[in-house]
Each structure stands twice: as structure tokens, then as C-alpha cells.
Nucleic acid binder design. Structure first.
Length: 431
RNA sequence: GGAGAGGUGACCGAGCGGCCGAAGGUGCAGCACUGGAAAUGCUGUGUAUAAGAAAUUGUACCGAGGGUUCGAAUCCCUCCCUCUCCGCCA
């Protein structure tokens, strides 16, 4: 959620930002509604506060008044005030709810260096690291490899849970667990606090992070008859962890690395690059999350990106770094970098596929989650900045490893850094 | 799941329906005392929001949401959470 005061003072900037982001035209109208509603809200608020002031005054003097006649006069006035006030308060509440609802739909402002535009043409490729391997044979995609080596079973996933679900088997299980270990250990060493989070979270927390659990285009599974949703990422639970708290500046930045299962309905994603493990309803993810001061967020964003790059460098997988254009930023993101790994089976002849991303969300999430910090010797509090970044999304990392490390004999080499964890050098060999 | 107890400020802990944004303590900050420190004493110490140059003043907040009342931290209802005991269970 943006700062209401900021929006009111910068209506044109906020609108231009929305145009840059190619959000739907209704959002631009929301901004006008916000301005209008704020005006109405202030007028009613003034009335309500005046009524309450008088109410308090009357209530106090009633208590002190000994003369029965005067007393009952005051009681009568108090009764009247109560009726008027409660009506006005209802109006006020309605206005406030609508205001917040509409304001919450407006996306975050954008980093001045983020490329403006939409689509892959507008995304800026910052660098390519590593060289895609040349195969002396025709490389398979991860689906073929997975089937041939009995590593991934989509048919059974479909039978048991529906399309988009799968069973990992045999060495794929070991690979999945090894990647979790690898990422967790690396980040713990780098000063991130390891956390295993719940896989469900309250609607309110989802909304604070910027998800929309309600509505038909939701990406989120909800649990019937509760206010709980299956999380789409540990970003939700990690961010929610400190909701409604006030931190000390000296404790910032705080870095966490969380593990959770991630559930996504992928509504409306049919037809998009969705082969095999690339777009699934459930996967496991190791996620970085940080709470910082406004001054720290920029540098820390680069730190998260560096971690993501190191992980893929150590795994020996070529990748490129994308500075995400305005239209592809999610609502809460102020700036976002994506890592796209080389996947030899991605389309014919290979291609880059997104494997991780890291976002600097500024105070957009902190405002609605009410996460603040205070500085020593300074009065008042400020909202923290939040950042998130994927360490490893297991599904897509597995694609990259299977496809990049496949051998002519059909087996798959284990990346060197994972050998000590997996305790073997080759995957898929019959025991 | 059953029975009971409880949720108050950074923390502990009082609180008769009006004088309670809330005693007292701890912690923290400043000042005094000291060669310096400890101990001691004094003073101050929530958040948000509106008005104001500021001092200050108004409003809201004692788990959340409703209700009773002229007036609720205090009474009633619902929900959430924590603790203890019993049952069940990975």
C-alpha cells in the first residue's frame, strides 16, 4: 500500500507510474476515487471527532453533577449525541474501508532506473554469466529425462491430485533435498537466520504482502470455512512474521532464509510456457527475506541478487540477469531482478527460463503489515523496507540441473557442490 | 476434543463503571552527588492521527469484534491467542 499522503500530493506522478506499469485502466480511476474519498473522509472525521469530544465532555460532567435535574439534562444530551455519533461513525467506517481498498489496488512506485515498458523487449539484460554447454548429442528436456530415469511422475500426480501436480522419485528426491541443504547452509553462513515457515497463512497477511486471495483471478488456494490460504511463497510467512511489530534500528537489517512449500493455482496461465515442472501447482522453495531501513534497502537488494547469482554459479549453470521492466513488476515491487537459467530443453535448442527473482518492495508491504522501526534518540517510528529473493525454487532448479547435466548415456551428473550432500556423482543409475 | 485460568505500556504488575492513557516497580534517558564509578536522589520516558511555528490541545488505542450505559480497561456476548489438567494422536 502506498502512503496516502504521498498519493494525494503526487496524483499525476502516481498515475504516470501506473501507465508505465501497464496496469488496467480501472486502477487510474481508483486514484481519483482515493482523492475524492479522502476529502469526504476528512469532513466526516472532523464531525465525528467533535461529536466524540462533546460526548466525553458530557459524560465527565454527568459523573460530577450532583443536582438531579441538571444531571438528567446532561444524560438526555448524551443520549442524543450517541445516536448522531454512531450514524456518522458508520459513514466514516465505510469511507475508510473503501479508501483503503482502493488505495491497496494501486501498485508501488518504481525505481528510477527500472526500464520503462512492457514485454521481453523492454526487459534489460544486465549480463550473461557462463556459457551454455554444447552437446555432442541431441539433449533431452527434463520431461524425457525424468520419465526415462523414473525421477518425475506427472501421470500419477494427475491421478492423485490433478493436473499440475507430480511425484518426485528416486534421485530427484535426493536432488531436491540436497538443493535445500545447499541453499540453507550457504545462506545461514552468510548471516541469514534459517526458518521453516507454516505453509498456510491468514488472508490478512496475504493481503499485506500484496496478494489478492479473493476474486476469481486469484493465484491462491483458500481453505474453505477458514481465513487461511496455502502460501504461494515463504515471502508471505516471512514478511508476516514481524507484522505489527516495532523494531530497533540497531537490529536492522534482519535477514532470513525460509523454507516452505508453495502452492499456486496458476489461474489464467494455461498456454504459457508450462511444460513439465516449469509451471506447477506445488513446489518447494528456499526464500530470502530482509527487513531494512530505507537507506539499507538498495544495497541489500544487490546483496540478495549476488546470493542468487552465487548459487547458480556454484551449481555451474549458465544464467543471465534481467532488470525487470515496469510492466512486469508485481504490484508491491519497487524494483526487480530476475535470474534466467539456461535450459537446454526449453523450446527447441534451449532457452533462458526464469529461476529466481529478487524484489525491493520499499515500504509498500511494511505499511499494510505495520512493521516499523525506531531509532535511538529519535521520536516516532518509520516503516521498514522489505526485500525478498528466491534462493532456490526447487522445481525450476531441478529442470536446469537435469537438462544441463545430462549425459549421452541418459544419466545425469551431480553438480560438484551437491556431491557431498547427495553422496553420489551420478543420478539415475539403477541400484 | 473436554475442564479450568488468563490476555493491560519495552518488560513485570495494579486497576471500585465516571477523577484511567492507565498506580507501583524494572528497564531506559537526562540531571544531581563522585576524582571516576557503584549506590542514592530528582526529572522524564507509548503509538497513530488532526490543528498549531511551537508550547500545547482534540480524537483513537488496555487481545479482536460486537453489545449494555449519559459514561467501559472495568459489565454482557462472539471470536482469537496463551497457560494448566484430562483425553486423543504423528
Amino acid at each position: 500500500m502506498l502512503d496516502l499522503k504521498y498519493v494525494l500530493a503526487n496524483v499525476e506522478l502516481v498515475k504516470q507510474n501506473c501507465r508505465d506499469r501497464h496496469v488496467s485502466p480501472e486502477i487510474l480511476e481508483e486514484i481519483d476515487h482515493v482523492v475524492r474519498l479522502d476529502g469526504e473522509y476528512r469532513i466526516v472525521l472532523r464531525d465525528v471527532e467533535e461529536l466524540r469530544r462533546r460526548q466525553n465532555e458530557v459524560a465527565q460532567s454527568t459523573g460530577k453533577e450532583k443536582d438531579p435535574a441538571k444531571r438528567s439534562e446532561l444524560v438526555t444530551e448524551g443520549k442524543g449525541l450517541k445516536t448522531t455519533a454512531s450514524e456518522k461513525e458508520e459513514t466514516l467506517r465505510a469511507l475508510e474501508a473503501e479508501l483503503k481498498d482502493r488505495l491497496g489496488r494501486v501498485p508501488n512506485m518504481t525505481h528510477p532506473d527500472a526500464p520503462v515498458g512492457s514485454g521481453d523487449d523492454a526487459n534489460v539484460e544486465l549480463r550473461i554469466v557462463g556459457t551454455p554447454r554444447t552437446f555432442s548429442f541431441k539433449p533431452k528436456d527434463h520431461l524425457e529425462i525424468g520419465r526415462a530415469l523414473d525421477l518425475i511422475d506427472f501421470e500419477t500426480g494427475g491421478k492423485v491430485s490433478g493436473s499440475g501436480f507430480y511425484f518426485l522419485k528416486n534421485d530427484a528426491v535426493m536432488l531436491d533435498l540436497a538443493l535445500q541443504q545447499f541453499a540453507m547452509q550457504k545462506l545461514a553462513r552468510a548471516g541469514f537466520t534459517p526458518v521453516i515457515t507454516p505453509d498456510l497463512a491468514r488472508i490478512q497477511i496475504l493481503e499485506g504482502i500484496g496478494f489478492n486471495p479473493r476474486g476469481n483471478e486469484t493465484q491462491v488456494y483458500s481453505v474453505e470455512n477458514t481465513d487461511l490460504c496455502l502460501v504461494g511463497t515463504a515471502e508471505i510467512t516471512l514478511g508476516g512474521m514481524l507484522a505489527d511489530t516495532v523494531l530497533e534500528e540497531k537490529d536492522l537489517p534482519r535477514r532470513f532464509v525460509g523454507l516452505s512449500h508453495c502452492f499456486r493455482t496458476e489461474a489464467g496461465a494455461a498456454g504459457r510456457a508450462s511444460k513439465g515442472l516449469y509451471r506447477v501447482h506445488q513446489f518447494t522453495k528456499v526464500e530470502m527475506f530482509a527487513f531494512t531501513t530505507p537507506e539499507q534497502s538498495g544495497p541489500l537488494h544487490l546483496e540478495l541478487l549476488k546470493m542468487e547469482e552465487e548459487i547458480f554459479q556454484e551449481l555451474g549453470i549458465p544464467y543471465r540477469v534481467i532488470d525487470t521492466c515496469t510492466a512486469d513488476l508485481g504490484g508491491p515491487a519497487y524494483r526487480k531482478f530476475d535470474l534466467e537459467a539456461w535450459m537446454p530443453g526449453f523450446f527447441d535448442g534451449g532457452g533462458f527460463g526464469e529461476v529466481t527473482s529478487t524484489s525491493d518492495c520499499g515500504d509498500y508491504q511494511a505499511r499494510r503489515l505495520n512493521i516499523r522501526y525506531k531509532s535511538e534518540g529519535q521520536k516516532g517510528t518509520r516503516f521498514v523496507h522489505t526485500l525478498n529473493g528466491t534462493a532456490v525454487a526447487l522445481s525450476r532448479a531441478i529442470i536446469a540441473i537435469l537438462e544441463n547435466y545430462q549425459r549421452e548415456d541418459g544419466l545425469v551428473d551431480v553438480p560438484a557442490v551437491l556431491v557431498p550432500i547427495m553422496g553420489k556423482t551420478v543420478m539415475g543409475a539403477k541400484a
